[in-house]
């Protein structure tokens, strides 16, 4: 009976761990959806690069530290395309002492406005007026705000880089597919768009119910 007891205890602990993870809303690594099945291009003909020298925040902004110590912040490819084509409408004002979590950029998908939060504390030194109101073709060139900060970008709790950023971004797109599915006005359209190799469209936001943008900000743009 000792053998059965020890084996049962071992399996019981594994089972409890799975239940704890489920309660916490997490997945065990063995049972997470395989990413490869989602590895089709999410945008027509394009792949999304994650440059190894950039950091990414959970609020879908990228950060790059320049040699002069200034940190450039822009919207990452997910943010610029998630619910359609993003147009940046407003930037925070130059000279402002910005706290992490305050609104740094405002943009719109069609007629729906979204707010991007500052991923870092700092003093805004300059803003890039060239990006306002224009379609962003290369998100990594279109920085929105330059600031100086005492915070470190190496803080693994707050910023992703390299492979981590890659895996996180993949999961965000997987999450987005579920989000659009849940918030769509016409489910049958989402079926065609999002599955069976379907691609995200340029005006996904029109498919969504009104409350969707608030939920999108909570799910994808909060820090």
């Amino acid at each position: 009976m000792v053998a059965i007891f020890v084996l049962a205890l071992f399996l019981f602990i594994l089972l409890v761990d799975l239940i704890v993870l489920r309660i916490q809303g997490k997945s065990h690594p063995a049972f997470e959806p395989a990413l490869s099945q989602y590895d089709y291009p999410v945008y027509d003909g394009n792949v999304i690069p994650i440059p190894s020298n950039l950091f990414f925040s959970k609020g879908h902004t990228w950060l790059k530290k320049n040699k002069d110590g200034l940190i450039e912040i822009g919207i990452d490819p997910f943010g610029t395309t998630a619910l359609g084509t993003l147009l940046i409408q407003k930037c925070v004002k130059s000279g402002k002492e910005l706290k992490r979590g305050e609104v740094i950029l405002e943009g719109s998908y069609g007629n729906k406005t979204v707010k991007f939060l500052s991923p870092i504390n700092g003093s805004v030194k300059s803003i890039n007026a060239d990006v306002i109101g224009k379609k962003i073709s290369n998100p990594y060139k279109a920085w929105g705000v330059r600031l100086i900060s005492k915070d470190s970008l190496e803080n693994g709790n707050l910023y992703f880089g390299g492979t981590e950023a890659l895996n996180w971004m993949k999961k965000e797109f997987i999450k987005l597919k579920g989000f659009i599915d849940d918030h769509s006005l016409k489910v049958e359209l989402v079926g065609e768009t999002m599955y069976d190799g379907g691609l995200l469209s340029n005006n996904t936001s029109v498919l969504l119910v009104d409350q969707s943008v608030n939920d999108f900000e909570k799910e994808f743009l909060s820090l």
Binding site: S36, D39, Y40, P41, V42, V47, I48, P49, I50, P51, S52, N53, G161, G162, T163, A165, L166, M169, K170, F173
Partner: peptide, 22 residues
């Protein structure tokens, strides 16, 4: 190492591609 630097001391230009075709 995804964060290694090249001879010029600048970040590697290697891109980590999000989507690969299978």
């Amino acid at each position: 190492s995804e964060h290694s630097v090249n001879e010029n001391g600048t970040a590697k230009s290697k891109q980590i591609i999000l989507s690969e075709r299978y």
